[in-house]
Design a binder for these strands. Sequence first.
DNA 1: GCGACAG
DNA 2: ATCTTGTCGC
Length: 220
Amino acid sequence: MLPPTYPEAAIALQEEISRLVVTEGDPYPSLVAGLDAAYARDGRTVFGAAALLVFPSLEFVEGAWAACEIAFPYIPGLFAFREGPALIEALGRLAHTPDLLIVDGHGIAHPRRCGIASHIGVVTGIPSIGVAKHLLCGAAAEPGSERGSAAPVTEGGATIGCAVRTVTGVHPVYVSVGHRVGLVEAVRLVLALSDGYRLPAPIRAAHALANRVRERGDGL
DNA sequence: GCGACAG
DNA sequence: ATCTTGTCGC
């Protein structure tokens, strides 16, 4: 199916993809890729970046990026149709295939249980986890203030993610299942991938790469 | 109808 | 996300 042009088509596609999401799994990855994007100042191009790190040493292996014309507006809940193409393109340019994806954004902590992390996980078949800085839906209980504390994010009685304290005393991140990873396992992995900063190392590396690429050349 | 709303 | 400098604090 071609990339949807209208919100109604995008929503219909998400409803189909959400049925394919596998919400359990306990991967022990060797190579973890962080995915993030940056936008050109003119707002017409999105730069997707993938940063590959060794697990659990967090040693950097390689980075890849891709520039795409923005083909979809920013609509909360339809994020994947804006950034997804650039992230998947960058992912495909890595010389190695990751065993796990850490995506900047939500997994199933989404109105249709199909955030960008789940979307990319299903499309690629690679286990994925969503890590977001803010909630899109649901409500989170307050986790303890110590690093490692976690509290559930729920919506309508269902647990859709966890608020996780990656740094003592710092605002938590919101972790949710992307694809082929259980929630408990996702939280454990995010903590193992976090080394002193609020966001996990793979996402920070991807974020830095995306910004570097954007600064170096706004065009294509 | 009103407010909220990943990046 | 992006527009934007310095500044307070560990």
